[in-house]
Measured scan of single mutants.
Amino acid sequence: GAYRMKIYDRDELRGQMSELTDDCISVQDRFHLTEIHSLNVLEGSWILYEMPNYRGRQYLLRPGEYRRFLDWGAPNAKVGSLRRVMD
């Protein structure tokens, strides 16, 4: 299947937008971000990790809009890595 997600540095799907279609071992290295404040999962399911290298707390992201970090259940906006959930 296809995988696509848009990430934003501000809440409510605002601010600088970056797009992912594959795994990202370090959000900071690739996008120069340490925080993601909202996101829109367009295709596929993903796991968001608090730390790089797929470590730390993890949150399942199904397709849909997440307008603030509380929407995916996190206590803050800190994001380290993102990985696709393969079928």
Rank of each mutant, 00 (worst) to 15 (best):
D9V: 09
Y59S: 03
E65P: 15
Q58K: 06
M86L: 13
M51H: 09
D23S: 12
R67G: 10
P52V: 03
Y49K: 00
G73R: 11
Y8P: 01
R14G: 05
P75K: 12
S38H: 13
E35M: 05
V27W: 14
D22A: 09
Y3G: 11
G56M: 00
D11P: 13
P63H: 03
M17E: 09
R30K: 12
P75G: 07
G44D: 01
Y49C: 03
H37L: 05
F69N: 11
W72L: 02
G44V: 00
E35T: 11
I47W: 13
D71T: 07
L13G: 15
Q28K: 15
S81P: 01
S81C: 08
A2R: 12
S81Q: 01
I7W: 09
V41C: 10
Y3A: 07
D9Y: 15
M17V: 06
R10H: 12
D9C: 12
R84W: 03
G73S: 07
K6I: 04
G56H: 01
Y54T: 01
S38C: 09
G56N: 04
K78I: 12
L48N: 00
T21V: 07
Y54G: 02
K6V: 06
Y3P: 09
E12M: 07
R30I: 11
R14H: 06
R57K: 10
S45W: 04
R4E: 15
A74E: 03
L13M: 13
L82E: 03
I7Q: 01
E19K: 10
F31L: 10
I7F: 15
S18A: 07
G15S: 15
D23Y: 12
D29A: 11
N40D: 13
E50Q: 04
R4G: 12
G44P: 00
E65Q: 09
S18V: 10
W72P: 00
Q58I: 02
I25R: 04
Q16W: 08
S45A: 09
L70H: 14
W46L: 01
F31P: 14
R4H: 10
H32A: 05
Y66C: 11
S38E: 01
T21D: 12
F31G: 15
L82M: 15
Y49L: 00
L60C: 08
G80A: 03
L60Y: 14
E35D: 13
L33Y: 06
G56C: 00
K6Y: 04
N40E: 09
P75F: 06
L48V: 09
L70D: 11
S18K: 14
M5R: 00
F31M: 10
G64Y: 02
N40I: 06
W72R: 01
R67E: 06
D9A: 06
E19T: 05
G56I: 03
G15E: 12
D11R: 08
V79Q: 00
D71Y: 05
P75H: 13
T21C: 11
F31R: 14
M17H: 12
T21F: 13
S38W: 00
A74P: 02
D23W: 02
E65N: 08
W46N: 01
R68V: 12
I36C: 07
D22Q: 14
Y3D: 15
V79M: 05
Y66I: 05
D87I: 15
F69S: 10
H32I: 12
F31A: 15
P63C: 04
G1H: 04
Y66M: 07
S18I: 12
K6Q: 09
V41F: 11
L42H: 15
E43K: 08
L13N: 13
V41I: 11
V27L: 12
T34Q: 07
A2D: 14
G64K: 04
R30V: 12
G73Q: 12
R83M: 06
R14C: 13
I7T: 13
D22L: 08
G64C: 03
G44A: 02
Q16N: 05
N40L: 10
L13D: 05
G80M: 08
R10P: 02
G44H: 04
V79E: 01
L20G: 03
C24W: 04
M17K: 13
N76R: 08
D29P: 10
L61T: 03
S81L: 01
Y8I: 01
L60N: 15
A2K: 13
D22H: 09
I7P: 00
Y54M: 08
M5E: 00
D87K: 15
W72A: 02
D9R: 12
E12Y: 14
M86T: 07
G56K: 00
G73V: 04
R55W: 04
V79F: 14
L70A: 14
G15H: 12
A77K: 06
E50H: 02
Q16D: 11
V85A: 10
R10W: 12
L61K: 01
D71K: 10
H37F: 07
S45H: 14
R10N: 11
S18H: 12
M86C: 08
Q28S: 05
T21H: 06
M51I: 03
R4T: 10
T34L: 08
R62K: 12
L60T: 06
K6F: 10
N76E: 08
G44W: 00
G1E: 13
V79D: 00
A77G: 10
S45Q: 10
S26P: 01
F31H: 11
H37C: 05
W72Y: 15
G80S: 03
R14E: 09
S81H: 00
G15R: 04
I36A: 08
G64N: 12
Q28T: 06
L48S: 00
